[in-house]
Write a protein that binds this DNA or RNA. Structure first.
Lengths: 147, 147
DNA sequence: AAGTATAGTTGCATTATTAAACCAATAACC
DNA sequence: GGTTATTGGTTTAATAATGCAACTATACTT
């Protein structure tokens, strides 16, 4: 598995991708948000090779994104549930989702939408805001090395 | 290169990852936001194999994320610049960055920060909001199939 | 106890990635 | 105008990751 180059060791984007930047991890996390917990559920949902799923689940547990709990409903198998760190990936998935909706359905309309559970209404697009509340685009920002 | 499984063909997250879910693409896009444009600049910054960079750049151009423009400053070589579609990946990178900052620097502090260009102040954390403005966590949302 | 489903592991074939050499087209120098 | 260095790749061979299918072990069902 890849590691970030040394030049990139300080970049939080690179470190994030180090943990979840492979082919499957974010899809596993997406399914975990959707409520899947068991090895077989993930495997069936993703259609991926089982040995790779084993490796990915192990990696996500080691990264502290998933927790392998012995049993939830009395059943004897392990279940994989999101930790707080894993739940914090939610904005990443939402950002990918919104970008995919906007740009990866040319011609057709995306048939799946993310809605507010209470009201059933679609959520707002994510927006980056400055400390004073102004909306910011990429060009309005700057990467700075902290003192 | 992987393609999403057929079950996932409708999921915008899967389609997004299909375009930028590999090891390098998002780092290339990050560097493009940072202002890099030339083959050699990307290669030097990322330290990746050049043939793979060739393939990734071609893929990003085919996906409409980058545009290969013949010359910007009169120089004769190609330059790779973000399209509108590519610039729309900004929230994805910010989400990864903020997650990385919060969780991938255990013990140490992340020395790089994203700031508002005008004011120099750090940006706000991305937040998902309902149509009526309420903050939403993952558990407050639902995936729904559109009529 | 026998049969079945779950959760992996193992071994082998396929594919992706890397590192390094190679090449063509500028650009810089003299 | 010819030589040399740099840029932007391509090709090739070795290495690493991934997928597929068969296998094992444990738990559940009857």
């Amino acid at each position: 598995m890849r590691r970030t180059s040394l030049d990139d060791a300080d970049c939080p984007v690179a470190r994030a991708l180090d943990a979840v930047g492979d082919w499957w991890s974010l899809l596993i996390v997406r399914d975990a948000f959707f409520g899947l917990r068991r090895f077989g559920e993930f495997q069936k949902s993703l259609g991926m090779a089982r040995n790779i799923l084993t490796v990915r689940l192990r990696g996500l547990v080691e990264s502290g994104i998933l927790d392998a709990v012995p049993a939830a409903d009395g059943g004897a198998y392990k279940e994989y549930v999101l930790t707080a760190k894993g739940r914090d990936l939610f904005p990443v998935l939402v950002a990918l989702r919104q970008w995919g909706e906007a740009h990866q359905f040319p011609g057709e309309a995306c048939r799946i939408e993310l809605v507010d559970r209470d009201k059933g209404a679609p959520v707002q697009p994510l927006e980056l805001r400055a400390a004073d509340g102004r909306r910011l685009a990429g060009a309005d920002t700057l990467i700075r090395t902290r003192a």
